[in-house]
């Protein structure tokens, strides 16, 4: 077992893990943060995307021990303790950017990362290119793309959803 200390959604966490524990397993099974999903488990689908030190990563392809000393934010960390939804979550809600919802946490974490890197005015093509690592098998991405464009604007200082 290895002892790890990290920050998850702003809270300090210390735990003992088997080194082969994936970050997503640790989050879901030990911390009971089940918002991050395991879809493909092969780093293709993006349902498990969380932020590691502010950057979108696939938590199914990261070891929990490699997050030791780092900062993790999951979908639960975007609107903590039942606070108002994050602007990107609100945009997915308003634009119906989901059907079954399985891919949604990863989509939203990827979208927030995208806005942090590329700003608030995102072209449709940019959004579609950036979603290369997030698969949705229900919709056709149309509403997801609309939601991200709207959420990006809403995330701007003073922006409205």
């Amino acid at each position: 077992m290895a002892k790890i200390s990290l920050t998850v959604n702003g809270r300090a966490v210390t735990a003992n893990v088997d080194p082969r524990t994936l970050l997503v397993q640790f989050l879901r099974e030990q911390l009971r943060l089940t918002g991050s999903h395991v879809g493909c488990d092969t780093s293709q689908c993006g349902a498990c995307v969380v932020h590691l030190d502010g950057k979108a990563v696939k938590s199914c392809t990261t070891l929990a021990v490699m997050a030791d000393g780092h900062e993790v934010v999951t979908i639960e960390g975007l609107a903590p303790d039942g606070a108002a939804l994050h602007p990107m979550q609100q945009a997915f809600y308003e634009h119906h950017g989901l059907q079954c919802g399985y891919c949604t946490p990863g989509m939203i974490m990827t979208a927030v990362d995208l806005v942090q890197r590329k700003g608030h005015e995102l072209s449709e093509q940019t959004i579609r290119d950036e979603l290369e690592g997030n698969l949705c098998r229900c919709t056709g991405y149309q509403n997801i793309v609309m939601a991200i464009a709207a959420g990006a604007k809403a995330m701007a200082p003073g922006g409205a959803a």
Binding site: S43, G46, V49, L52, K55, A56, V57, K58, T61, T62, T110, D113, L114, R117, E130, E132, G133, N134
Partner: peptide, 9 residues
């Protein structure tokens, strides 16, 4: 290369 999350790691 890959996708944004892959490029971060």
């Amino acid at each position: 290369i890959g996708d944004p999350a892959v490029r971060h790691r």
